[in-house]
Protein backbone atom coordinates (compact mmCIF):
# COMPACT_ATOMS: atom_id res chain seq x y z
CA UNK A 1 0.00 0.00 0.00
CA UNK A 2 2.99 2.31 -0.49
CA UNK A 3 4.07 3.62 -3.89
CA UNK A 4 2.88 7.19 -3.39
CA UNK A 5 3.75 8.26 -6.92
CA UNK A 6 0.84 6.48 -8.53
CA UNK A 7 -2.21 8.69 -8.41
CA UNK A 8 -5.41 6.75 -8.03
CA UNK A 9 -7.45 7.47 -11.11
CA UNK A 10 -11.02 7.13 -10.02
CA UNK A 11 -13.15 7.59 -13.10
CA UNK A 12 -16.37 7.68 -11.13
CA UNK A 13 -15.40 10.72 -9.18
CA UNK A 14 -17.28 13.25 -11.27
CA UNK A 15 -17.74 16.98 -10.79
CA UNK A 16 -15.04 19.27 -9.46
CA UNK A 17 -11.71 18.01 -10.60
CA UNK A 18 -9.66 16.59 -7.75
CA UNK A 19 -7.60 19.23 -6.02
CA UNK A 20 -3.91 18.65 -6.44
CA UNK A 21 -3.12 18.30 -2.77
CA UNK A 22 -0.08 16.29 -1.75
CA UNK A 23 -2.29 14.18 0.47
CA UNK A 24 -3.69 11.58 -1.90
CA UNK A 25 -6.56 9.53 -0.64
CA UNK A 26 -7.36 6.14 -2.01
CA UNK A 27 -11.14 5.91 -2.28
CA UNK A 28 -12.59 3.29 0.09
CA UNK A 29 -9.14 2.44 1.40
CA UNK A 30 -10.63 0.87 4.49
CA UNK A 31 -12.96 -1.39 2.56
CA UNK A 32 -10.11 -2.51 0.30
CA UNK A 33 -8.08 -3.36 3.37
CA UNK A 34 -10.94 -5.33 4.92
CA UNK A 35 -11.41 -7.29 1.68
CA UNK A 36 -7.76 -8.04 1.11
CA UNK A 37 -6.54 -8.62 4.64
CA UNK A 38 -7.84 -12.17 5.32
CA UNK A 39 -6.49 -13.55 2.07
CA UNK A 40 -3.32 -11.50 2.36
CA UNK A 41 -2.50 -12.78 5.84
CA UNK A 42 -3.16 -16.42 4.97
CA UNK A 43 -1.30 -16.12 1.67
CA UNK A 44 1.69 -14.63 3.46
CA UNK A 45 1.66 -17.27 6.21
CA UNK A 46 0.99 -20.39 4.15
CA UNK A 47 2.43 -19.49 0.74
CA UNK A 48 5.13 -16.85 0.97
CA UNK A 49 6.55 -17.86 4.34
CA UNK A 50 6.96 -21.56 3.40
CA UNK A 51 8.65 -20.57 0.15
CA UNK A 52 11.04 -18.32 2.03
CA UNK A 53 11.59 -20.94 4.71
CA UNK A 54 12.30 -23.64 2.14
CA UNK A 55 14.90 -21.42 0.50
CA UNK A 56 16.44 -20.69 3.91
CA UNK A 57 16.54 -24.37 4.90
CA UNK A 58 18.02 -25.33 1.56
CA UNK A 59 21.02 -23.08 2.26
CA UNK A 60 21.93 -24.89 5.48
CA UNK A 61 24.08 -27.94 6.06
CA UNK A 62 24.29 -30.12 9.14
CA UNK A 63 27.73 -30.38 10.64
CA UNK A 64 28.97 -32.41 13.56
CA UNK A 65 31.76 -31.61 15.91
CA UNK A 66 33.76 -34.78 15.52
CA UNK A 67 31.97 -38.07 14.99
CA UNK A 68 29.81 -37.98 18.09
CA UNK A 69 29.28 -34.25 18.53
CA UNK A 70 25.79 -32.79 18.46
CA UNK A 71 24.54 -31.89 14.96
CA UNK A 72 24.69 -28.16 14.23
CA UNK A 73 23.06 -26.43 11.27
CA UNK A 74 25.43 -23.99 9.60
CA UNK A 75 25.20 -21.90 6.45
CA UNK A 76 26.39 -23.96 3.54
CA UNK A 77 25.71 -21.76 0.54
CA UNK A 78 24.68 -23.78 -2.46
CA UNK A 79 26.00 -27.07 -1.10
CA UNK A 80 22.53 -28.65 -1.03
CA UNK A 81 21.81 -27.54 -4.60
CA UNK A 82 25.03 -29.15 -5.76
CA UNK A 83 23.89 -32.28 -3.94
CA UNK A 84 20.51 -32.08 -5.72
CA UNK A 85 22.19 -31.81 -9.10
CA UNK A 86 24.38 -34.79 -8.26
CA UNK A 87 21.47 -36.83 -6.97
CA UNK A 88 20.83 -39.45 -9.63
CA UNK A 89 17.59 -40.73 -8.15
CA UNK A 90 16.16 -37.22 -8.25
CA UNK A 91 17.11 -36.64 -11.88
CA UNK A 92 15.82 -39.98 -13.05
CA UNK A 93 12.54 -39.12 -11.32
CA UNK A 94 12.49 -35.80 -13.19
CA UNK A 95 13.20 -37.60 -16.46
CA UNK A 96 10.36 -39.99 -15.70
CA UNK A 97 7.73 -37.29 -15.12
CA UNK A 98 8.95 -35.37 -18.18
CA UNK A 99 8.49 -38.46 -20.37
CA UNK A 100 5.13 -38.93 -18.70
CA UNK A 101 4.11 -35.32 -19.39
CA UNK A 102 5.28 -35.28 -23.00
CA UNK A 103 3.04 -38.26 -23.77
CA UNK A 104 0.18 -38.03 -21.29
CA UNK A 105 -0.68 -34.32 -21.45
CA UNK A 106 -1.13 -34.15 -25.26
CA UNK A 107 -3.05 -37.43 -25.31
CA UNK A 108 -5.35 -36.34 -22.50
CA UNK A 109 -5.98 -32.88 -23.94
CA UNK A 110 -6.42 -34.33 -27.43
CA UNK A 111 -9.10 -36.72 -26.20
CA UNK A 112 -10.71 -33.92 -24.18
CA UNK A 113 -10.76 -31.65 -27.23
CA UNK A 114 -12.26 -34.31 -29.51
CA UNK A 115 -14.97 -35.16 -26.96
CA UNK A 116 -15.74 -31.47 -26.40
CA UNK A 117 -16.03 -30.86 -30.16
CA UNK A 118 -18.29 -33.88 -30.56
CA UNK A 119 -20.46 -32.71 -27.68
CA UNK A 120 -20.70 -29.32 -29.33
CA UNK A 121 -21.53 -30.72 -32.77
CA UNK A 122 -25.06 -31.51 -33.97
CA UNK A 123 -23.99 -35.11 -34.57
CA UNK A 124 -24.48 -36.33 -31.02
CA UNK A 125 -27.66 -37.09 -29.11
CA UNK A 126 -27.93 -37.31 -25.33
CA UNK A 127 -25.35 -34.61 -24.68
CA UNK A 128 -26.35 -34.00 -21.11
CA UNK A 129 -25.87 -37.63 -20.19
CA UNK A 130 -22.46 -37.93 -21.85
CA UNK A 131 -21.24 -34.70 -20.34
CA UNK A 132 -21.98 -35.94 -16.83
CA UNK A 133 -20.77 -39.47 -17.49
CA UNK A 134 -17.36 -38.20 -18.61
CA UNK A 135 -17.12 -35.93 -15.62
CA UNK A 136 -17.80 -38.64 -13.01
CA UNK A 137 -14.12 -39.75 -12.69
CA UNK A 138 -13.17 -36.23 -11.62
CA UNK A 139 -15.15 -36.86 -8.43
CA UNK A 140 -12.84 -39.79 -7.67
CA UNK A 141 -9.74 -38.69 -5.71
CA UNK A 142 -6.38 -39.72 -7.16
CA UNK A 143 -5.73 -42.08 -4.26
CA UNK A 144 -9.05 -43.86 -4.75
CA UNK A 145 -8.66 -43.97 -8.54
CA UNK A 146 -5.22 -45.51 -8.12
CA UNK A 147 -6.55 -48.14 -5.69
CA UNK A 148 -9.37 -48.98 -8.11
CA UNK A 149 -7.14 -49.26 -11.17
CA UNK A 150 -4.56 -51.11 -9.12
CA UNK A 151 -7.10 -53.91 -8.72
CA UNK A 152 -8.17 -53.66 -12.35
CA UNK A 153 -4.53 -54.08 -13.44
CA UNK A 154 -3.65 -56.86 -11.03
CA UNK A 155 -3.07 -60.21 -12.78
CA UNK A 156 -5.35 -62.33 -10.60
CA UNK A 157 -8.04 -60.03 -9.19
CA UNK A 158 -8.80 -58.06 -12.34
CA UNK A 159 -12.10 -58.58 -14.14
CA UNK A 160 -10.02 -58.32 -17.32
CA UNK A 161 -7.85 -61.24 -16.24
CA UNK A 162 -7.67 -62.50 -19.83
CA UNK A 163 -5.84 -59.30 -20.68
CA UNK A 164 -3.92 -58.69 -17.46
CA UNK A 165 -2.46 -62.18 -17.44
CA UNK A 166 -0.99 -61.49 -20.90
CA UNK A 167 0.16 -57.88 -20.50
CA UNK A 168 1.71 -57.10 -17.15
CA UNK A 169 0.53 -53.56 -16.53
CA UNK A 170 2.48 -53.36 -13.31
CA UNK A 171 5.89 -54.37 -14.69
CA UNK A 172 8.78 -51.89 -14.46
CA UNK A 173 8.60 -51.13 -18.18
CA UNK A 174 4.90 -50.53 -18.23
CA UNK A 175 3.88 -49.15 -14.87
CA UNK A 176 4.53 -45.50 -15.78
CA UNK A 177 1.99 -45.75 -18.60
CA UNK A 178 -0.47 -47.60 -16.40
CA UNK A 179 -0.26 -44.62 -14.03
CA UNK A 180 -0.65 -42.29 -17.02
CA UNK A 181 -3.90 -44.06 -17.82
CA UNK A 182 -5.18 -43.50 -14.26
CA UNK A 183 -4.40 -39.78 -14.46
CA UNK A 184 -5.95 -39.52 -17.91
CA UNK A 185 -9.06 -41.32 -16.73
CA UNK A 186 -9.54 -38.86 -13.87
CA UNK A 187 -8.88 -35.61 -15.73
CA UNK A 188 -10.19 -35.97 -19.30
CA UNK A 189 -13.73 -35.05 -18.29
CA UNK A 190 -12.63 -32.02 -16.33
CA UNK A 191 -10.53 -30.68 -19.19
CA UNK A 192 -13.28 -31.50 -21.65
CA UNK A 193 -15.74 -29.41 -19.67
CA UNK A 194 -13.42 -26.40 -19.60
CA UNK A 195 -12.99 -26.60 -23.38
CA UNK A 196 -16.68 -27.32 -23.90
CA UNK A 197 -17.90 -24.34 -21.91
CA UNK A 198 -15.50 -22.20 -23.89
CA UNK A 199 -17.05 -23.61 -27.10
CA UNK A 200 -20.52 -22.76 -25.82
CA UNK A 201 -19.55 -19.11 -25.49
CA UNK A 202 -18.84 -18.79 -29.23
CA UNK A 203 -21.75 -16.86 -30.77
CA UNK A 204 -23.92 -19.00 -33.04
CA UNK A 205 -23.90 -16.46 -35.90
CA UNK A 206 -20.35 -17.44 -36.71
CA UNK A 207 -21.46 -20.95 -37.56
CA UNK A 208 -24.44 -19.70 -39.56
CA UNK A 209 -22.11 -17.69 -41.76
CA UNK A 210 -19.75 -20.63 -42.20
CA UNK A 211 -22.62 -23.00 -43.03
CA UNK A 212 -23.96 -20.63 -45.66
CA UNK A 213 -20.53 -20.69 -47.21
CA UNK A 214 -20.82 -24.47 -47.41
CA UNK A 215 -18.39 -25.42 -44.63
CA UNK A 216 -18.68 -28.95 -43.27
CA UNK A 217 -18.81 -29.76 -39.57
CA UNK A 218 -15.19 -30.88 -39.71
CA UNK A 219 -14.11 -27.64 -41.37
CA UNK A 220 -16.06 -25.61 -38.83
CA UNK A 221 -14.34 -27.52 -36.04
CA UNK A 222 -10.84 -27.14 -37.47
CA UNK A 223 -11.03 -23.61 -38.82
CA UNK A 224 -13.34 -21.85 -36.39
CA UNK A 225 -13.84 -23.71 -33.14
CA UNK A 226 -10.31 -24.85 -32.33
CA UNK A 227 -8.67 -21.44 -32.90
CA UNK A 228 -11.30 -19.81 -30.69
CA UNK A 229 -10.80 -22.18 -27.77
CA UNK A 230 -7.01 -21.91 -27.71
CA UNK A 231 -7.10 -19.87 -24.46
CA UNK A 232 -9.08 -22.63 -22.75
CA UNK A 233 -6.68 -25.29 -24.03
CA UNK A 234 -3.74 -23.21 -22.81
CA UNK A 235 -5.25 -23.04 -19.34
CA UNK A 236 -5.83 -26.79 -19.19
CA UNK A 237 -2.31 -27.43 -20.51
CA UNK A 238 -0.71 -25.30 -17.81
CA UNK A 239 -2.66 -27.02 -15.07
CA UNK A 240 -1.74 -30.39 -16.54
CA UNK A 241 1.97 -29.50 -16.64
CA UNK A 242 1.82 -28.40 -13.00
CA UNK A 243 -0.05 -31.58 -12.11
CA UNK A 244 2.41 -33.83 -13.91
CA UNK A 245 5.46 -32.48 -12.10
CA UNK A 246 3.59 -32.88 -8.81
CA UNK A 247 2.68 -36.50 -9.40
CA UNK A 248 2.58 -38.27 -6.05
CA UNK A 249 -0.62 -39.96 -4.90
CA UNK A 250 -1.07 -42.42 -7.77
CA UNK A 251 2.48 -43.85 -7.84
CA UNK A 252 2.62 -43.85 -4.04
CA UNK A 253 -0.53 -46.01 -3.95
CA UNK A 254 0.86 -48.29 -6.65
CA UNK A 255 3.73 -49.17 -4.36
CA UNK A 256 1.39 -51.53 -2.52
CA UNK A 257 0.46 -53.29 -5.78
CA UNK A 258 3.89 -53.65 -7.32
CA UNK A 259 7.55 -53.39 -6.49
CA UNK A 260 8.23 -51.64 -9.84
CA UNK A 261 7.54 -48.25 -8.27
CA UNK A 262 10.59 -47.14 -6.29
CA UNK A 263 10.41 -44.81 -3.32
CA UNK A 264 11.88 -42.06 -5.52
CA UNK A 265 9.71 -42.71 -8.57
CA UNK A 266 8.61 -39.09 -8.99
CA UNK A 267 10.27 -35.84 -7.77
CA UNK A 268 7.71 -35.39 -5.00
CA UNK A 269 8.22 -38.94 -3.82
CA UNK A 270 11.96 -38.21 -3.78
CA UNK A 271 11.27 -35.16 -1.60
CA UNK A 272 9.17 -37.27 0.74
CA UNK A 273 11.70 -40.08 0.92
CA UNK A 274 14.59 -37.67 1.48
CA UNK A 275 12.78 -35.80 4.23
CA UNK A 276 12.02 -39.11 5.94
CA UNK A 277 15.74 -40.05 6.04
CA UNK A 278 15.79 -37.36 7.57
CA UNK A 279 17.72 -35.01 5.35
CA UNK A 280 15.46 -32.00 5.58
CA UNK A 281 17.88 -29.54 4.01
CA UNK A 282 18.39 -31.60 0.88
CA UNK A 283 14.63 -32.23 0.64
CA UNK A 284 14.02 -28.48 0.93
CA UNK A 285 16.48 -27.83 -1.89
CA UNK A 286 14.64 -30.40 -4.01
CA UNK A 287 11.33 -28.69 -3.28
CA UNK A 288 12.77 -25.35 -4.36
CA UNK A 289 14.20 -26.79 -7.59
CA UNK A 290 10.89 -28.49 -8.32
CA UNK A 291 8.84 -25.35 -7.66
CA UNK A 292 11.14 -23.25 -9.84
CA UNK A 293 11.04 -25.81 -12.65
CA UNK A 294 7.25 -25.96 -12.54
CA UNK A 295 6.96 -22.20 -12.47
CA UNK A 296 9.42 -21.80 -15.34
CA UNK A 297 7.76 -24.43 -17.50
CA UNK A 298 4.22 -23.16 -17.14
CA UNK A 299 5.40 -19.58 -17.60
CA UNK A 300 7.39 -20.49 -20.71
CA UNK A 301 4.43 -22.39 -22.11
CA UNK A 302 2.15 -19.42 -21.48
CA UNK A 303 4.54 -17.01 -23.24
CA UNK A 304 5.06 -19.44 -26.09
CA UNK A 305 1.35 -19.80 -26.82
CA UNK A 306 0.79 -16.08 -26.46
CA UNK A 307 3.45 -15.34 -29.03
CA UNK A 308 1.99 -17.92 -31.37
CA UNK A 309 -1.43 -16.39 -30.99
CA UNK A 310 -0.11 -12.95 -31.88
CA UNK A 311 1.44 -14.15 -35.12
Amino acid sequence: MTAPSIAPSAPTRAGARPAKTPRRRVPHARAVLVFLLPFGVLFALFYLLPIGYAVYQSLLVVERDGTFGPPVEVFGGLTQYIAVFQNEAFWSSVGRVLAFGVVQVPVMLGVALVLALLLDSPLVKGKKFFRLAYFVPYAVPGVIAAIMWGYLYSPNLSPFSALTSEVSFLSPDFVLWSIANVVTWVYVGYNMLIIYSSLLSIPAEIYEAAKLDGASQLQIALRIKIPLVVPAITLTAIFSIIGTLQLLAEPQVFRSFTSSVSSTFTPNMAVYATSAVPNVNLAAAMSVVLALATFAMSFAFLKFTQRKAEK
Binding site: F46, Y47, L49, P50, I51, Y53, A54, Q57, I238, I242, L245, Q246, L248, N268, V271, Y272, S275, V280, A283, A284, S287, V288, L290, A291, T294, F295, S298, F299
Partner: peptide
Protein backbone atom coordinates in the same frame (compact mmCIF):
# COMPACT_ATOMS: atom_id res chain seq x y z
CA UNK B 1 1.69 -21.42 -10.69
CA UNK B 2 3.41 -22.57 -7.49
CA UNK B 3 2.73 -26.27 -7.06
CA UNK B 4 0.94 -26.88 -3.77
CA UNK B 5 2.98 -30.00 -3.08
CA UNK B 6 6.20 -27.99 -3.14
CA UNK B 7 4.78 -26.19 -0.10
CA UNK B 8 3.98 -29.34 1.88
CA UNK B 9 7.47 -29.97 3.20
CA UNK B 10 8.28 -26.36 4.20
CA UNK B 11 4.83 -26.12 5.80
CA UNK B 12 5.68 -29.19 7.83
CA UNK B 13 8.97 -27.62 8.91
CA UNK B 14 7.23 -24.40 9.95
Amino acid sequence: LVPATALALPLFLI
